[in-house]
């Protein structure tokens, strides 16, 4: 087994910095660990928030993840970027936490779908955040993970496969299904939004115009996959 101190990163300056920090963490350098924590806290929080849809649990799972990083830093083998390795741990921790809750994503999604249909209150907004989170709520946890890692984190499909511990074809299939499902769902949300004054029109402000244009282009399209 290679020691972490023998590993040299050739995956860009960011990974070089991450590796240096991790090497210091491996010898229990708490200052380095705080820097690493600060570096990963925002992205892990965001990723786990999106993955789990349980904001109240995010902080705990982030800490579970970084606790493992503290404990196992010396076992890092350099087969991937440090950030991929850390995100992979977060993915497993998030899935495990959801398993404990026995959350079934599809049931969750059905409940949410019903709520959308019953909504007539104009104040109940389908703004940017609701639009996006409603859409993401209706796809499975694994599909959500692929979407988030692709569009927010900019991961390649190979890196996503490493993070989620699955073959690259599985990543592509999950993305395919996520796109199909989102393409079907988002026009429905748009119709719902249009029936509510001030949601997607110009009065809604610039941040609310964005989903509108995006939704229109989705609903206009009847392309192969959509999104």
């Amino acid at each position: 087994m290679k020691s972490i101190h023998e590993i040299k990163s050739k995956r860009g300056p960011e990974d070089v910095e991450d590796l240096k920090l991790l090497q210091r963490v491996a010898v229990k350098d708490k200052v380095a660990f705080e820097k690493l924590y600060l570096r990963f806290y925002p992205q892990l929080s965001r990723y786990l928030n999106r993955l789990m849809r349980r904001p109240e649990m995010v902080e705990e799972v982030v800490n579970d993840t970084l606790f493992v990083v503290w404990e196992k830093a010396d076992q890092f083998q350099g087969r991937s970027k440090v950030s991929t390795w850390v995100t992979g741990i977060a993915y497993l921790k998030g899935i495990k936490a959801l398993d404990k809750l026995r959350t079934v994503p599809d049931q969750h999604a059905d409940e949410l779908d019903d709520n959308i249909e019953e909504t007539n209150d104009p104040i109940s907004k389908l703004g940017l955040d609701e639009w996006l989170t409603s859409g993401l709520d209706l796809i499975s946890v694994d599909q959500r993970s692929v979407v988030e890692l692709t569009y927010f984190f900019g991961y390649s499909y190979q890196e996503i496969a490493e993070t989620m511990g699955c073959p690259v074809n599985t990543v592509k299939t999950r993305m395919f299904h996520a796109r199909r499902r989102l393409a079907k769902l988002l026009p429905q949300l748009q119709e719902q939004g249009e029936s509510s004054p001030g949601l997607l029109n110009s009065e809604g402000g610039s941040s609310k115009e964005k989903p509108s244009s995006s939704l229109k282009s989705n609903s206009d399209s009847s392309s192969d996959i959509g999104l």
């Binding site: 806290y41 925002p42 929080s45 965001r46 928030n49 940017l128 955040d129 996006l132 979407v147 988030e148 569009y151 927010f152 941040s207 964005k210 989903p211 244009s213 995006s214 282009s217 989705n218 399209s221 392309s223 959509g226 999104l227």
Partner: peptide
């Protein structure tokens, strides 16, 4: 469409 969706995903930041 994907570019638009990506910028939408990236623009939306949840409070930390």
């Amino acid at each position: 469409r994907l570019q638009e969706f990506q910028s939408l995903v990236q623009d939306y930041d949840e409070p930390l």
